[in-house]
Simulated scan of single mutants.
Amino acid sequence: MASAPQSNSLPIFYNNLEPLSSQAHAKFKARMVDKAPFLTSNHAVPLTVDEFAMAQRHFPIVFSSGADSVPLALMGLNEGVNVFVDDEGKLIDPVYVPAYIRRYPFLLAKLRPDSDELSLCFDPTADAIGEFEEGQALFEDGQPSAATQEILKFAEQFEQAGQRTGQFMKELSESGLLIDGEVAIQPNDSDKPFVYRGFKMVSEEKLRETRGDQLRKWSQSGMLALIYAHMFSLGLMREIFARQMQLGKMPQPVMPAIN
């Protein structure tokens, strides 16, 4: 069900990366778009811990399978299904949009493997950036414009949130609370359940067995609130399932694990 973002290639959504340059892109502008076609075939979007409070109202929050698990907002329960956007990538209903989506097509990336310096890059295949008549100029008099500075600020904030998320995932993994997830949903008109696997979740049983001093530590650090946000959000899986049924985007019952 839930796959981790690609680590040995480009991140999800990105087809290419190019450093933003005042020389090569002096006439470039960034414009608002009302659709994101890349979302139509993506059912799981990376999420930072800073977003758990908002995201848990709209999406199930799960953790990807594999060694380097990351939080994911589920926008569908099956690969290639997103129940929050139409076939063009427009939002069907008002919903919280994860920062990972809002950051696109920009990204802070290392240009040299021997340096920790991050540079602002963008996906040149995106419709939101280019030499347009409309939009906000990215450079003025050879210098980054106010719009570019805001884009850079947002990208930096996302990186910082990513570091906090990494620390949360490290503690969560070391706590032993994460288990392989499984959710079975049986519609009224079906004699077999739809079984969803291929993700990780927090074990309620293991959480109940956690020592009081450890729970107090997690409560003081804010980690406990994040765990509960994840656990409460899992109830939304049945709502996502119902949306898929309405859209006619259902697989066969009793599925194998999807990774």
Rank of each mutant, 00 (worst) to 15 (best):
S190D: 14
P253N: 03
P144A: 12
D189G: 13
Q157P: 05
L47P: 04
D50G: 06
I92S: 05
E150P: 02
L17V: 00
R243Q: 11
A161R: 08
T210D: 09
Q246H: 13
Y100H: 00
G198F: 15
R208D: 12
K35S: 12
E171Y: 03
L72S: 00
L120I: 03
S41L: 02
E204C: 04
V45M: 02
N42C: 12
A4S: 02
L20N: 10
L91Y: 12
L236G: 08
D180Q: 13
F154L: 13
F106N: 05
F28V: 02
Q149E: 09
N16L: 03
S41W: 02
F28M: 10
E174I: 03
V95N: 11
F52W: 03
V81S: 00
L172K: 14
G142L: 07
Y228C: 09
R103E: 01
V33P: 04
R211L: 08
P193W: 06
N8M: 09
Q252G: 12
A137Y: 11
R238E: 10
R238M: 05
K27D: 15
D127H: 02
K217Q: 15
L226I: 05
Q163F: 13
F28G: 01
A36S: 01
P11T: 03
F241E: 03
Q244T: 04
K35G: 02
N82A: 06
K249R: 15
L177F: 08
D116C: 01
D87Y: 12
R208Q: 14
F139I: 11
M75T: 11
D114A: 11
S7T: 13
G166A: 09
A2T: 15
E140D: 10
S22I: 10
V83Y: 07
A137C: 01
L226Y: 05
T148R: 14
D127M: 13
